[in-house]
């Protein structure tokens, strides 16, 4: 167990430079015009003197950039993300957005794993059959489509043409509710974005599982297990699956950042009130305190996902604890 604790501590220590790196990159780009206030002044014509004064204070405009950065970092680490240019405290804004984003991302990931893993196994076990060709072809289509575009197609078909599902938002703010009650209404709203996000993730996961499974099924230990009379079911679902799924867990966990990276376009398409849509909205209106806050919060979420992934990997694979 000592090895495991050591391993986790090492991974945690890796997260700190990553966090700092992202914060530096993010902060520097908002200083591309000299300092953040310049960008806001440049992009927003009718900004009020009061707003400008606030930004000057919050970003410590009078200090050199490398000192300003540390003031900003210090503020951030103390939970002071500043005031949005338009609607109050950034922290108060962000917290509900986190929930809405995860409400979509986590079920999609869970569903995609629940469907993608068995499909990938089937595909690998039946390599070069019609079923395998059908699956691999569908999957490569899946990874070749912009997620938001599938969303738009869904909206056109299921909302505007068939009128089965709502086209945007996470809920109706007032009656009439879809399908009778506020709860069913929320369900009706989540179906389309969830389905789109799940479909795209299934494609990725299926391809990963299939490739890993093919690799693992060729391994000597699978042959040796078969040769010792172990049943094909156990060979597949005990030995091959665990060996194939371990790297998949890692990749999926690590690609949480990629998934969240898709949030802006997807949430904008569905007007889903989460971090992604808020990011696009804030970036468009140059609400820099909000933009910086969301970027850093997403980074932290991704890092947490990475650490959880590393933990899962260490539990699944005894070899990582010593290396």
């Amino acid at each position: 167990m000592g090895g495991l604790v050591n391993y986790v501590i090492r991974r945690l220590l890796f997260a700190i430079p990553v966090f700092l790196a992202v914060s530096v990159i993010t902060y520097l780009i908002t200083n591309a015009a000299g300092d953040p206030v310049q960008i806001v002044k440049f992009g927003i014509r009718n900004i009020s003197p009061a707003q400008l004064e606030y930004l000057r204070l919050y970003f410590h405009e009078d200090l050199p950039v490398y000192i300003r950065y540390f003031y900003w970092l210090n503020d951030f680490l103390h939970g002071n993300l500043g005031q949005s240019l338009y609607t109050g405290s950034v922290v108060a804004l962000i917290v509900p957005w986190i929930g809405t984003t995860l409400e979509l991302q986590i079920p999609a990931l869970a569903l995609a794993l629940a469907i993608g893993v068995p499909v990938g196994i089937y595909s690998a076990k039946h390599q070069y059959t019609k079923g395998d060709y059908a699956i691999t072809t569908t999957a490569i289509f899946g990874i070749s489509m912009p997620t938001f575009w599938i969303g738009i197609m869904g909206i056109i078909v299921f909302s505007y043409y068939l009128h089965w599902l709502p086209a945007f938002g996470a809920y109706s703010s007032y009656p009439p509710y879809w399908w009778g009650s506020p709860f069913m209404d929320a369900l009706a709203h989540i179906i389309l974005p969830l389905a789109v996000l799940t479909l795209v993730s299934i494609a990725t996961i299926t391809r990963l599982v299939r490739a890993n499974m093919l690799e693992v099924l060729r391994q000597d230990y699978v042959l040796a297990a078969r040769a010792s009379g172990v049943s094909e079911f156990k060979v597949t679902f005990k030995h091959a699956l665990k060996n194939a799924i371990t790297p998949v867990v890692t990749i999926v966990g690590l690609s949480f950042g990629v998934l969240l990276g898709g949030a802006p376009a997807l949430e904008t398409t569905f007007s889903w009130p989460g971090l992604g849509k808020a990011f696009v909205f804030a970036a468009t209106r140059l609400d820099l305190p909000t933009v910086l806050g969301i970027t850093m919060i997403i980074t932290i979420m991704v890092l947490i996902a990475n650490i959880v992934t590393d933990l899962a990997y260490a539990v699944l694979d005894p070899r990582v604890r010593i290396t």
Binding site: V22, G261, P264, T295, T299, V302
Partner: peptide, 10 residues
Amino acid sequence: VIPVLILILL
């Protein structure tokens, strides 16, 4: 491990 697409958008 960083959310690259967010940074690209920014």
